[in-house]
């Protein structure tokens, strides 16, 4: 047992299990904690774990993008919004429906168990690979097969930036 743990393969397995645990604990904190700041921290932890999973899926490039975009940009933007919109911690919410929590739990559990059942019951076909999915091939495909989507996504990002500026700026004068 100890000998299998100290081999390189055993260490890889341990790191993978650690990443899975980090992802799930971060997700739990993000979805169930009372305070929003803690939820953002949980989201960051979960995203770091997801980046580790991407690394195990042979895509270090996507893992790096996950850390750069999600941890570096989206989480910081959300924490800025929390600071700008300072939700009062003590604010009295209108009385919540007592069924919301259990019903949310039941619907989430049904969806999750359904997805897991499908994943376990299906035999997934394994196809032979036609290339190795390196960054070079991703770049070539982005500019040949997927060039239309590539251009569209840049327009979407541009419009999103402009729209965010316009929406957030309006009403500042008065």
């Amino acid at each position: 047992m100890i000998q299998t743990l100290t081999t390189p393969d055993g260490l890889v397995g341990i790191i993978f299990l650690f990443m899975v645990v980090v992802t799930l604990i971060g997700g739990l904190v993000a979805s169930a904690s009372e305070r929003l700041v803690r939820a953002v921290i949980g989201l960051v932890i979960s995203f770091v774990g997801v980046a580790g999973l991407y690394y195990f899926l042979n895509s270090p490039f996507i893992a790096m993008m996950q850390v750069l975009i999600y941890v570096g940009a989206v989480a910081v933007a959300i924490s800025f919004a929390i600071m700008l919109a300072a939700p009062e911690e003590k604010k009295k919410f209108s009385p919540t429906n007592p069924l919301t929590g259990p019903l949310g739990l039941i619907s989430a559990a049904l969806l999750t168990s359904g997805l897991i059942t499908i994943a376990l019951k299906t035999t997934w076909p394994i196809m032979p690979k036609v290339n190795n999915g390196s960054v070079k091939i991703i770049g070539i495909q982005l500019l040949t097969n997927h060039s239309m989507v590539f251009e569209l996504i840049s327009i979407v990002l541009l419009i999103a930036i402009l729209g965010a500026l316009v929406i957030a700026r309006g009403g500042r004068e008065h």
Binding site: G27, L28, S31, L103, G104, L105, S107, L115
Partner: peptide
């Protein structure tokens, strides 16, 4: 797939509650 399903379920729970 199981990890993805669990994350999805947490997202649904957060979205509802």
């Amino acid at each position: 797939l199981v990890v993805g399903a669990l994350l999805f379920g947490m997202g649904v729970y957060g979205m509802v509650t």
